[in-house]
Each structure stands twice: as C-alpha cells, then as structure tokens.
Design a protein around this nucleic acid. Structure first.
Ligand SMILES: [Mn+2]
Length: 331
DNA sequence: GTGTGGTTCAAAT
DNA sequence: TGAACCACAC
C-alpha cells in the first residue's frame, strides 16, 4: 500500500538520474519488487504458451527458476555501472501489518477462484489475466534468488521482519548510500536517498532526496514542506493512512498537512477533530497512532555489524515498551 | 474547485 | 506497488 498519493505530491523534487551517476556507491535493493516482477513476467509467458496449471503451483520454484534470471539481470546491470548491490529480503510477517496481509491473501484467493471458474468454462484467455494476478513470491523463490546471489558473490541480508525497516537501517548506519525500491514508505522511515522506477532498458532511475523536502513547492495547489522535520513528515504520512493504521475517514495527505500546520502535536490535533465532530475519529485512534509511529521508528532489524537484532532507531529510555508494543514492532 | 476514496490497469522476455 | 481516472461530498 505505501502512502497513497505521496509520490505525486513530491513530483517537484523527483530527479531523473542515470545509473552511472551512482558509480562507486553501494545501494540497497528491495528484493521483493524484482522477484515479484520476475515471477509475474514468467507466469505471463507460461500462461501465454498454454500452460494452464494453477499459477501458484507454477511459481513455486520446482519447475523453473526463470524468475531469478530477471532479478539477477538487474543485479548485473548495477554491477556493470560499478554499483555494489546490497540485496534485502523480507523476513517474517510483522504483527502490525496483519490487516494488510490478510487483505492481500484474500484478493489473491479471489483472483484464483475467478481464474479457475473461467478456465472451467473454457475461457482460457480471460482466465489467464486472473491467474497472473494471484502470483505470489514464496520463501522458496526467495531462497532460489539467494543461491544465485551467493554464486555471484552479491551481498544480501534477510530482514527479521520488513525489508523497508532493514534498508532504512543499512542507510542509517552508512552501509549503503541509497535505496532502490518502489515503495513510498521508505521516505517515511527517514531514508535520505530513495530511488524509484528503475528502467533497465535506459539504465535510468528516479531519485528523491530527503534534503530536497524543503524545496517542495506550494505552487499548483501542492503543499510546502519547508522547515518540516522528519517527525512532522512522518505524522502527515501516518495520519493520511498507512500499512499500520487506516486513516480517519476523510483525512488524506492534504488534510493531514493543513491540520499539522494548525496544531503543534497530534494529541491536540486529534482533540480538536473530536471537538469539531466533523470527522469520525475512531475510538482508541491516538493509541493506535502511537503504535504506528513506533513501527516506523523502532521496528526490529538485523545489524550486520553487531550480528544481532536491534531497533531501527534507539528507543528513548523514558518510552515504555509494554509486551503488546514489543509484539507489534517485532522482538 | 478541492480532496478523498474507490476502481481498474500495468507490471516484461 | 503506483498511476490514472472518476464519482462523490464538502
Ligand atoms: Mn512498505
């Protein structure tokens, strides 16, 4: 899901770069995106050839590991431009994302059912498009990718939970110079340099830098982020709705932005909204907000230097971490 | 007019 | 995942 509408809002600071601009740098790579696209591409090709077995079976990695080629092609492309890839894979499910994941699983099941129904009616071309929609990246596929990475001596790490937080940590401690992903969440995790939309044909990529946030213009009905702190930016994103917390109905990025200009703290903001009574603030929203904030700040990640699990950012001593919170952000 | 939220589509060898 | 599009409410 990411933060809906965030990238268009930051349009004015998106910079098109060539991969050669990153020569000599180490870039974290969100493995999920490449694997998913690889699986998608090959599932599509197989189905085109008339292989109408269940798409989820097709992609288990038993019959083929072709999807790995797609990802490795991109790994080699980075290396060709003298960029050192640091591949980051997703780990276990984060309790905080439970809602999002059950939703996805449901959608995949729906698409599979539709596909099977259409196939049963002999409508194979229509069935194909639904089969393609239920492809999923399995741990087995991730393992096939890891084997290829090992063979070619590419650095990688499996995150204890989300790759997002893991990549943010690698950048934070200086192990990577930037992050290649398609997920706008990385900006909310406080990353300094995030690279989107890698085009392997032209070797170009779209860059968004934290230092440019202040230049986000209020022109054309947009918003201004001049003088905004990481904390305020994060608040705007969470209030607008994120993977860890749905928004208050009727509140999107722009409303969150103007609310945060009026109120100094989220407590005051929520109190004012409740007093006004125009937007339905759910019961327990503020508590849920605090938890979401902690997931962005303190999610559990693996430190390759210390070789142990740590928090993305250190938890302040006065912050109480009860068992529920611990479970939520990973332990 | 503005902003939100829902739907639909593309994704690539 | 995002982008594009559109209907709806304010
Ligand atoms: Mn994410």
């Amino acid at each position: 899901m990411g933060i809906s509408g965030l990238l268009p809002l930051l349009k004015s600071i998106q910079v098109n770069k060539h991969l050669s601009d990153f020569e000599g740098q180490t870039l974290a790579v969100d493995a999920y995106v490449w694997l998913h696209r690889g699986v998608y591409a090959y599932a599509y090709v197989w189905l085109h050839r008339g292989v109408y077995a269940c798409a989820t079976d097709l992609a288990t990695g038993k019959k083929t590991t072709k999807y790995v080629d797609y990802a490795m092609h991109r790994v080699r492309l980075l290396r060709h431009h003298k960029i050192q890839p640091y591949v980051v894979l997703d780990g276990g499910p984060l309790p905080a994302k439970k809602g999002t994941e059950t939703e996805r699983r449901q959608r995949r099941a729906e698409n599979l059912a539709k596909a099977n129904a259409l196939a049963a009616q002999g409508k194979h071309s229509q069935a194909r498009e639904f089969y393609v929609k239920c492809v999923d990246v399995t741990p087995q596929m991730a393992y096939q990718f890891i084997k290829a990475l090992r063979t070619e001596g590419v650095q990688y790490v499996v995150a204890p939970y989300e790759a997002d937080a893991q990549m943010a940590y690698l950048e934070r401690i200086g192990l990577v110079d930037g992050i290649i992903t398609e997920d706008s969440d990385l900006l909310v995790f406080g990353c300094r340099k995030v690279l989107f939309k890698l085009d392997s044909v032209s070797s170009t990529i779209t860059s968004i830098s934290r230092v440019d946030f202040g230049s986000v213009t209020a022109a054309e009905g947009g918003i201004s982020l001049l003088g905004w702190t990481d904390s305020q930016f994060r608040a705007m994103a969470i209030l607008s709705g994120c993977d860890y917390l749905p928004s208050i109905p009727g509140v999107g990025l722009k409303t969150a932005w103007s609310l945060l200009r009026k109120h100094r703290t989220v407590e005051q903001l929520v109190r004012a909204l409740r007093l006004e009574g125009k937007k339905p603030v759910p019961k327990g929203y503020l508590e849920a907000y605090r938890l979401a904030e902690k997931v962005f700040l303190h999610q559990r990640v693996y430190c390759p230097l210390e070789e142990k699990l740590v928090s993305l950012t250190e938890v302040p001593a006065q912050d109480v971490m009860d068992a529920e919170t611990e479970a939520y952000i990973g332990r």
